[in-house]
Design a protein around this nucleic acid. Structure first.
Lengths: 336, 336
DNA sequence: GCAATTTACGCAAGCGCTTGCGAAAACTTG
DNA sequence: CAAGTTTTCGCAAGCGCTTGCGTAAATTGC
């Protein structure tokens, strides 16, 4: 049997309440007694039952990080950053992977609703809406969204400015003399994808290039999808000379397909990928990428969340971070 | 305020105990009443407080998965497999990343000790021993180790047979006519690394090759370490013609260093890497790898754990799985 | 050295749930 | 239809902790 508060109290010959206060560093317990209690607790390797503690105090010091996809190196970096920040503040994170399944998202949300965690951070994923919304008003929305646009400005969010990022990418490609720039993004019912498209359109306009709807593609974020989209593209009516591929895994597949087709990067097709990670840097040729401020995304999201939790803020806040364009071989025109 | 069991009981005009039994599908509640209770609970979107439930029932249906490194794609795959299996059994996992820090490992162990989780699976990482051991006898060791060798056969474990894997790799390289095969592994105070070395030695012996201690290298598992080890190697006395690199990230760095040095794979150096994942397949040239049975590792570890938890088994079990050699360009001799 | 403060501690209720046990109600059976 | 059996349900204790409140002890001030 586990050793409990009561046991410690008996050993120290004080009341349970005193032990509790001593252990939690709360006022109202004398220096002597406190030391004695701490000593006994340590000697007996006492571990408070966090369930009981959470139940009584209505606070668990755990937060849920709900991840749409674990395969994405960028997301993993965000998680690591959150974890680091949480650790410093005395919070533990519990990581939940939804694999882009909406029902799992809902089921993980019940961690919040059933008080197992003090708050939740959602990383990526589509906005499904209904259940999130519901949760948000049933609870006092201790929820932060990372890289996910909500329909209403309902949730505190930390966002990467994809629009701005894509804009930069187009600009860069135009400077390198590419003229037919294709955009490969995710599902169009995802608001964040519309953001990308809007940046793309703006940049084309400002560069005096024509917009061709046929050069905008939507795919899933996996390797095969990236591969397939290229096959589709080269059989299409209008062949691009450059790609902006905005999702990590898709980009990998796309590059493979290009090479497999006997084409060269950047000679035949320039490529701008997404995410400054080991994948995009290892692939041949090294990819020019839009680099997400992963560290900052994680840190800020945690800070926001703690503010929501502790200060009981109910006003929502939004922070927008700009990605950085990291230029490598894959987008440098040979004929420049 | 959250709606509670008591509320439901009042609304249904029955006792709390009846509601509890109805909700948990336990016998002793009439069909009529049960239906009524379920209906009311659903209508009110009732969510049991899992803390209270865990406290009372001494069971949380959550298990901790404690991960030594999140950067490793292989580990991520194992986690996903565990998660899938857990989901089917009605368990939720909470993922804890230690970043190879022993103290974090200990702190996460307290999730177990403080009853927040019903069991824990450790993936990878060194055996530190002391605290794990301590935990194991304080609790009735509801712990499963994946790819981690314990000093005593104390814990239920699921292991990849590295020795056997490396043996295969050497054999393959020998067939391809490589004669000076270097082994790049992790820290030698890790028992599992000794396993690798033992497989390496056996294979050399059986192939009639001389063992040269200078061809065994230990490094951290990151890209830079892999890079550095190659620099070190080519300045050494004895230059290998092939590498078996047993850790994912190290392998990437090693390959980069080889290419950066102006050498060719496999012409100048053959490479056998570790882990059949996107990284090793995307790199140029595609790497021959030892492929871990990630799916199976995850699945079995969960099964073992549930057996420990539910059947209260105290006997430890060990399952050993053999990695598969996937042959790609990086180890095919041109002169064969 | 005695009243007024302050500090240290214990009491007990309560967090939301589970579960053993006993009583009432609903069924059997001959 | 009475006695026995089974089913349905409520009572109450308890899981291990926190916390408001009240009182006793220690401290201060003059």
């Amino acid at each position: 049997m586990q050793i409990t508060l009561k046991d410690i109290a008996r050993m120290a010959d004080v009341a349970e309440s005193t032990v509790s206060r001593a252990l939690n560093d709360k006022p109202g317990v004398g220096r002597e007694t406190k030391l004695k209690i701490l000593k006994i607790a340590k000697e007996n390797n006492y571990r408070p039952n966090q369930l009981a503690r959470g139940l009584a105090a209505k606070k668990t010091n755990m937060i849920a990080v709900i991840l749409a996809e674990m395969d994405s190196p960028g997301n993993i970096e965000i998680v690591k950053s959150i974890e680091k920040a949480a650790d410093e503040k005395g919070y533990q994170i519990i990581l939940c992977n939804t694999n882009n399944q909406e029902d799992k998202e809902e089921s993980y949300l019940s961690l919040l609703e059933s008080n197992q965690v003090d708050g939740a951070i959602f990383i990526g994923g589509k906005l499904v809406g209904s259940h999130l919304l519901r949760a948000s008003f049933s609870q006092d929305n201790r929820i932060v969204l990372v890289n996910r646009l909500a329909e209403e400005n309902f949730f505190t969010s930390v966002l990467t400015d994809y629009s701005q990022g894509i804009y930069q990418a187009v600009e860069h490609l135009v400077e390198e003399n590419f003229k037919k720039i294709a955009l490969v993004c995710g599902s169009r019912d995802d608001l964040i994808e519309e953001e990308k498209i809007s940046g793309y359109k703006n940049a084309l306009r400002d560069s005096g290039l024509d917009l061709n709807q046929e050069l905008i593609f939507s795919t899933a974020n996996d390797r095969q999808a990236g591969y397939n989209v290229f096959l589709e593209i080269i059989e299409g009516d209008v062949i691009p000379d450059a790609f902006i591929s905005t999702r990590e895994l898709t980009t990998i597949g796309l590059v493979e397909a290009i090479k497999m087709g006997g084409y060269f990067i950047p000679d035949d097709f320039a490529v701008v990928g997404y995410g400054d990670n080991i994948l995009t840097s290892v692939i041949d040729p090294p990819l020019t990428v839009l680099s997400e401020p992963v560290e900052e995304l994680g840190k800020s999201s945690l800070e926001f969340l703690l503010k929501l939790i502790n200060d009981n803020l109910d006003s929502q806040q939004i922070k927008v971070l700009t990605p950085e364009l990291i230029i490598r071989e894959s987008s440098i025109s040979k004929y420049n």
